[in-house]
Design a binder for these strands. Structure first.
Length: 911
RNA sequence: GCCGAUGUGGCGAAAUGGCAGACGCAGGGGACUUAAAAUCCCCUGACCGCAAGGUCAUGCGGGUUCGAGUCCCGCCAUCGGCACCA
């Protein structure tokens, strides 16, 4: 280990303990009494008071994606985002905001459960141990979290409200008229639902949380179903186990009702365009039409969805998905065996096989024919697994001339291909899928010939509508959210099942008063042998005295993370998930921000990894909108600004992983360089959003910078004495530290212009860069200042004070320590650095009298001249033409033009 | 295949259309030291040249402009997402 640049091993624990003891980073809710000596109260004149929301300074809410506390502990990727938000939190506090900066644990999850299955140890114990380790690691980095607001999704006092929100969904429906969720009591039940059972069924069919018997992704290895989003290439996202289709009764959340709002509201929030695009693609809105085809002789109709109704004349066959409900009834007996065989074949394929075998199309003819409504022609009806049951109507009209998939299928099975779109000159019509002019699209009923694609779409849809054969419609790729899991370590559903007089099963919400509903203790955490979830093992718990049975599924891990940012606002409220006062103060922007910009609606800045670009962020937005509709929160969107930090790669430029052996453990970096150097390096590596490789020598570089900062302040002789004393008696190091003195050239004298100018340049650069999240260049500005200041004969206290304020967000421990030393001789007493006002720069100091101006000849720099900042156009031109160095390049040429950019450059164009 | 991002020294990177490479790492030289470490100072894109200086250079090829890393068009590569969604 190299020689220590400065005693960070003493400084860092000292300040972490002091911050914790003094509650320095407690954020105050409206109505809370602020203790007399708290620095926030001192700064804002609120000591000992209990200010209302409007008496408090404006809020700023900086949120990190809370981690899953895994057994492996923190890796260097976690603190990247945490450091960024911490720097901004400290900066905003200095500016005068009331900053909310909390941390917690996304603590339900499979690893603890799998460990329980193996060892019998309750997942809670595993989870608690992991949380303790994560807490230790995160605290060692000196983040200014308000730990009094810590939450864990596994805490019954937390998940009682997760269960409560589920009941809000269960007890609500989506009113298509108002386009918002409303209490289920507002649902008008039609008269023909004339029995209680029918009325119940009508309501249950419209709840935002409902039960559905549907094909799901079953993972035998994990013993649970998975959401579509959790299945990657036919395997489970967690563990990579095969997933098969299986029809099961499952809880679903009606997120599709919100598709349009989830899409439209992306407009108003400050997320990166690429992230918004990922959400848009996931929602997958597409405009088109549904068209009815009559089945020959059967009196039945098949409805297809198409985005190209203009190509209806080219529809030469229909394809149903193998699972389509009409398949059995339209298939004539002689084709029954072949069709059934194909259906079985398709059903037997796992998702993995479906994906892998997708290169070659398969299908069979059902033997049935349909009528193309535009020209009365009979066309065959096929089934094929390239048509998905779960999208659109599960049936398509095939237009092989103008759809790649249909074309492939028609080629293979020798089906007719009819051109109906004329491409631009020189393009082949076969397989042409873009817009063109309609051709061969005319019958006694309707004609589209000569129309552009856009026009033809409009015309055919209005014809279909007039004939009652179809209508314009919009489809989404987004599916309803499969919300139940067959696991132990998750939130139990607050639902019981009863039978009515007819013996049919129905669900009923558990009363709010019974929450939290805590999972029962088990001896064995495996699913039951017959495949029921682990909770089914607890028969005493499952069966209620009145014979009702508890739901034994649990909620997915996403549930807890859908609303944790709301619980932070009021983490210990016993009567509500968040009090109205706290919600309103922290989520609403302020009009009367007292000179500060007002902040933004919802979370002001949310930082986390791209891996949550669709799942967590879409689910959380959905829940938030439901809570908004039901009047529980005051903003339609939860996260106003969102930034994805880039991945940190190993030193080999590869993704860090245990198997590659390139994982960097923060504990080791901290032991050698300290938390401040670690934080600084995480930010100095490059732009926050970029992917970048770790380089241990880079840490050494910023560490050296902190050493220079230390030597800028501290007397060398006292440093040498301190080191010698420590070497002789390491146990008393902390005691010797009081002997460290400020350097004698740190003096309370006015700064000269050569000192105040670099300082103010630094203030401007750091301030602007922090606003724009450019941490790397802000740090470089600090380095430039220190490189200059270290050479000064005399160092004015006022300049150093300002510098420490700029440094504090990045390297808070060192800054606090030096700040304390700087103030120990000042009778005004110690002022808390954490709440000292952010310095402002004086533009007057930054005005230059003369400027260096490059002189170009034909765009190449030939000289640099010095001109007065106020130089006129003519003066600059003259000075440039007078340049000795530029002259040779003008020899024998005629000056055609002179470009003068004031304060920037002169370019002489000559030929 | 589709969508998105990125491409600049040996490395991490910086640059409102106006001196490309700030800041840092690594490397080289020097000071201090008995010596080393630490620290401090200087050099460090490539090529040509003794030097002064010059030429080339921001993935590749074009274009716009007095001037392009930056804007436009067409490619290539890497990374991320989606992928039979009709």
């Amino acid at each position: 280990m190299a020689r220590r640049q400065y005693p960070f091993h003493l400084i860092e624990p000292k300040w972490q303990q002091r911050w914790e003891k003094e509650g320095t980073f407690r954020a105050w809710n409206p109505g809370e009494t602020i203790p007399a000596d708290h620095p926030f109260g001192v700064r804002h004149g609120l000591s000992g008071k209990a200010p209302s929301g409007s008496q408090l300074p404006p809020k700023f809410y900086l949120l990190d994606m809370f981690p899953y506390p895994s057994g492996a502990g923190l890796h260097v990727g976690h603190p990247e985002g945490y450091t960024a938000t911490d720097i901004l939190s400290r900066y905003r506090r200095a500016q005068g905001y009331n900053v909310l900066h909390p941390m917690g644990w996304d603590a339900f999850g499979l690893p603890a459960e799998q460990y329980a299955v193996k060892t019998g140890q309750h997942p809670r114990l595993t989870t608690e141990a992991n949380i303790a380790n994560f807490t230790r690691q995160i605290k060692s980095l000196g983040f200014s979290y308000d730990w009094s607001r810590e939450v864990a999704t596994t805490d019954p006092e937390y998940f009682r409200w997760t269960q409560w929100i589920f009941l809000q969904l269960y007890n609500a429906w989506f009113n298509p008229e108002t386009r918002r969720a409303e209490p289920i009591s507002t649902l008008v039940i039609p008269d023909d639902c004339d029995t209680p059972a029918r009325q119940r069924a009508y309501r249950d069919d419209r709840r935002l949380a409902y039960v559905s018997e549907a094909p799901v992704n079953w993972c035998p290895e994990l013993g649970t179903v998975l959401a579509n989003e959790e299945v990657v290439d036919g395997r489970s996202e967690v563990g990579g186990f095969p997933v098969v289709r299986k029809s099961m009764r499952q809880w679903m959340l009606r997120i599709t009702a919100y598709a349009e709002r989830l899409l439209g509201d992306l407009e108003g929030i400050d997320w990166s365009e690429s992230l918004k695009e990922m959400q848009r693609n996931w929602i997958g809105r597409s405009e088109g039409a549904v068209v009815d085809f009559a089945v020959c002789g059967a009196g039945k109709r098949i409805t297809v969805f198409t985005t190209r109704p203009d190509t209806l004349f080219g529809a030469t066959y229909l394809v149903l998905s193998p699972e389509h409900p009409l398949v059995a009834s339209i298939t004539p007996p002689e084709r029954g065996a072949a069709v059934a065989e194909y259906q079985a074949h398709a059903a037997g394929k796992s998702d993995l096989e479906r994906t892998e075998l997708s290169k070659e199309k398969t299908g069979v003819f059902t033997g049935a024919m349909a009528i193309n409504p535009v020209n009365g022609e009979s066309i065959p009806i096929w089934i094929a697994d390239y048509v998905l049951a779960s999208y659109g109507t599960g049936a398509i009209m095939a237009v092989p001339a103008h759809d790649t998939r249909d074309h492939e299928f028609a080629e293979k099975f020798g089906l007719p291909v009819v051109q109906v779109v004329e491409p631009p000159q020189g393009r082949e019509w076969r397989g042409y899928t873009e817009d063109g002019l309609a051709v061969n699209s005319s019958s006694s009923r309707v004609s589209l010939n000569g129309c552009s694609t856009a026009e033809a779409k409009i015309r055919i849809v209005s014809w279909l509508e007039s004939q009652g054969l179809g209508r314009r419609t919009i489809n989404y790729k987004l599916r309803d959210w499969l919300f139940s899991r067959q696991r132990y370590w998750g939130e139990p559903f607050p639902i019981v099942w009863r039978r009515d007089a007819d013996g049919s099963l129905y669900s009923e919400a558990v009363s709010d008063r019974e929450l939290p509903l805590v999972p029962p203790p088990l001896d064995d955490y495996k699913p039951t042998p017959d495949g029921r979830p682990p909770l089914a093992r607890a028969s005493d718990w499952v069966t209620l005295p009145d014979g009702a049975l508890r739901e034994t599924n649990t909620m997915p891990q996403w549930a807890g993370s859908c609303w944790y940012y709301l619980r932070y606002l009021d983490a210990h409220h016993g009567g509500r998930f968040v009090s109205e006062g706290a919600e309103s103060y922290w989520m609403r922007p302020r009009s009367d921000a007292g000179g500060l910009p007002p902040g933004s609606p919802g979370v002001d800045l949310y930082v986390g990894g791209t891996e949550h670009a669709v799942l967590h962020l879409l689910y959380a937005r959905f829940w938030h909108k439901v809570l908004f509709d039901l009047g529980h929160v005051s903003t339609p969107e939860p996260f106003f600004k969102l930034v994805n930090q880039g991945l940190i790669l190993g030193t080999d430029g590869q993704k860090m992983s245990k198997s590659r052996g390139n994982v960097v453990n923060p504990d080791e970096v901290l032991a050698e360089y300290g938390a401040d150097a670690f934080r600084l390096y995480e930010m100095f590596m490059g732009p926050l959003q970029d992917v970048k490789p770790w380089n241990t020598q880079g840490v050494a570089g910023v560490y050296k910078f902190l050493g220079r900062v230390w030597r800028l302040f501290i007397d060398e002789a006292s440093e040498t004495e301190f080191e010698q004393a420590c070497a002789g008696d390491p146990a008393n190091s902390a005691g010797y530290a009081s002997g460290l003195r400020l350097a004698s050239n740190v003096q309370d004298v006015p700064a000269d212009v050569f000192q105040s100018k670099p300082l103010h340049l630094c203030i401007r650069k750091v301030t602007e860069d922090l606003e724009a999240l450019r941490f790397n260049t802000a740090i470089s500005a600090l380095m430039i200042f220190v490189n200059e200041a270290i050479a000064w004969e005399v160092k004015p206290v006022e300049v150093l004070r300002n510098f420490l304020q700029l440094l504090a967000p990045f390297a808070p421990h060192l800054a606090e320590e030096l700040w304390e030393k700087l103030h120990q001789n000042h009778p005004s007493g110690r002022v808390s650095l954490s709440y000292s006002p952010w310095p402002t720069f004086d533009p007057a100091l930054l005005v230059e009298d003369t400027l260096e101006i490059p002189v170009q000849v034909n765009g190449k720099v030939r000289d640099v001249i010095r001109v007065a900042a106020t130089a006129t156009h003519i003066e600059m031109e003259g000075a440039a033409l007078a340049s000795e160095k530029a002259r040779p390049f003008l020899a024998g040429k005629q000056v055609r033009k002179i470009i003068v950019v004031p304060r920037k450059l002169v370019n002489i164009v000559a030929a």
